[in-house]
Design a protein around this nucleic acid. Structure first.
Lengths: 353, 353
DNA sequence: AAACCCTTCGTGAACGTTCACGAACTCGTA
DNA sequence: TACGAGTTCGTGAACGTTCACGAAGGGTTT
């Protein structure tokens, strides 16, 4: 009658409590709860009713232990408040759900953690990780051992899967367009590595000059493209935020009044640049063009609407999930065919450039 | 020497494989992996090295079964691509992580699922759920049994925790402001219940008229406030998107040229309304004011910058997590003190109204 | 009445880990 | 030598569930 078995945290009942209450065995309760055959309809309903009354919910641990894990994947994101990431995350969650996976989310930027720390936090709970981890922060793959890691926008490290973006292609595309439009005094508004604002410092890339180490991967691609086209490009650093970009734009337009085009690290900073140009009394795109990078929906809502190097973020998410799927199933091997994908940006011309 | 134990999915080794390889017992491997005392330093390092080589990672199921669950909470979100939700989710993830919780994320809108289906998907994997589930969709709390559910912006249902918003307060605040600014022909741009676009249908709320059932909770609050102030308010329906709001704004401005203020269901739709007003050749705010609701960062980037009824989304997240914390610890009981919170919007006056 | 099948239910075993306890060994001291 | 204390390691049990198999009972056929 009375069960002596202990309760789960939250005073939850175990399968034995239900079995005792119903006067049946564990197995019968299992059959009732999982809609398995081999049980009388009346018994099934009685057990289910009792389970509901006792607040019984099967332990995911016991279930997972015996049945083999439903795969659950970690998703490491540096900053959900940057509209770029939710669009990506949304796609990942949708496709993962389609596959019956669960997604354990970590937004590590606000807590001041690094990408590797995020993976460490996720590791005990997941079978794989997809993430934007940032560059050169130690070995995230090692933390996961044999479990697959798919990283995005990362050059270094030994992740099993890797999705990169062809910034050289994007930079050429952007510069060709701006030069054809007659722009000559170009500025690249950079966010700096690791998002660390290193102050509004100035660098110039011409010919094949080595570019400052602090310049981001994207910035370096633009520097290379500018060198190849033999035109000067001013790179200025700014915090990775709209407000920071706005201030940086104001100050660079004061220092160098002749500037007629600004390329921003991402769309969010481009939005700030738009404001900054307006602050200086100029109009976009007549006096100064502004070009973003990302292609987030925000760009269409701004005025003037943002011209940008766009990535289809749902496609990026799809690529990441499919790559992970391949790694989990063994269809793709860590170093092998398809373990590294390169995606290209598409230039979307709207009003700002 | 050779272990006969099977491998986990992904060919992962078990603790017995490591023990056999190192020539020690399970318990010694446990001690080595968890930095427990009572083991020789040399042994510890040898075991750890071997574990690394074999790609051993402890089963979270076995560990959870014996140690009791690390709590993991589900987060149900209807649409991550609406900037409102990431800001909230970011806050929840950050605070949950601080508490050592894991967050299993579900973005159910894109898959065409409902809030309850989302909870059903999450249920086997989590100890509690926080979510925007939408109104009147059946019983999500029943799915979770004894596990706490905290819902936001939901009137019906028997969730243990509930966070509501005082839309009547917000509506009064907005109308007072607009009327004081001399606005007389007001439009409420509604998103309709469940986000279902029911076509640009027109309703008028005056005196204490019963308002169309299709009108959202927010819309009804504005209708009540308008009735109390004895001014007419036109409610029009639109799909819950910037593009939809833009079209709806264009058409309503054509139908009723005298309109001098538009209040939108949320900031995203307000951004669309901004565009729609411009399309019609009018300027904001001179010819027509536009007011949003949410207070997402996007508003500051628009031009004109968006006047809005703002919610501090990090506060909302904090409220949800703390409420859940109370429910998990037993400090708050389902029907009791503190199980229902009401938060107020703050009017942020910028340029658009 | 014996043989068989079908339905309904129960019993050991196993999943991989940690906990509680005890055994073996080392070292120093009475 | 014998004893005790400390260090290092191993063995049963337990966590809650499902799987594989077998048992009991009723009905039909041979």
């Amino acid at each position: 009658m009375t069960s002596t078995s202990r309760r789960l945290p939250g005073n939850r009942a175990t399968i034995l409590d239900v079995a005792a209450a119903a006067g049946v065995s564990r197995q019968t309760v299992t059959r009732a709860m999982n809609d398995m055959p081999g049980i009388r309809q009346e018994t099934r309903e009685r057990v289910q009713e009792l389970a509901r009354e006792l607040g019984y919910t099967p332990s995911r641990f016991a279930k997972g232990l015996v049945q083999g894990s439903r795969t659950s994947v970690g998703l490491s994101i540096p900053d959900l408040t940057n509209p770029y990431y939710p669009a990506f995350a949304s796609s990942v969650v949708e496709l993962a759900t389609q596959r019956g996976w669960h997604v354990v989310m970590d937004d590590y930027g606000h807590g001041g953690a690094t990408g590797v720390q995020s993976v460490e936090h996720l590791a005990p709970q997941v079978d794989a990780v997809i993430g934007y981890l940032g560059d050169a922060e130690g070995e995230a793959q090692a933390v996961l051992g044999r479990r697959p890691l798919v990283v995005l926008d990362q050059m270094t490290g030994s992740a099993w899967g890797r999705i990169r973006f062809d910034y050289d292609h994007a930079a050429r595309r952007a510069l060709d367009y701006l030069l054809a439009a007659g722009r000559r005094q170009l500025v690249y508004l950079d966010a700096g590595k690791n998002g660390l604002p290193s102050g509004p410092q100035l660098t110039t890339g011409r010919s094949a000059d080595p570019v400052d180490r602090a310049v981001s991967t994207r910035g370096q691609a633009f520097a290379r493209a500018a060198a190849a086209a033999e035109i000067p490009l001013t790179i200025i650093m700014s915090p990775e935020s709209a407000a920071g970009a706005r201030r940086a734009t104001q100050s660079v337009l004061t220092d160098r009044p002749g500037i007629d085009a600004i390329i921003a690290f991402n769309d969010l900073m481009a939005a700030g640049a738009l404001k900054g140009v307006a602050d200086s009394g100029r109009t976009v795109p007549m006096d100064c063009a502004v070009m973003g990078m990302d292609g987030i929906p925000l760009g269409e809502l701004l005025s003037p609407e943002l011209t940008t190097l766009s990535l289809d973020l749902r496609e990026v998410g799809r690529a990441a999930v499919e790559l992970l799927d391949g790694l989990l199933s063994g269809a793709i091997t860590p170093g092998g065919q398809g373990s590294e994908l390169v995606l290209c940006h598409r230039l979307i011309v709207r009003q700002s450039a």
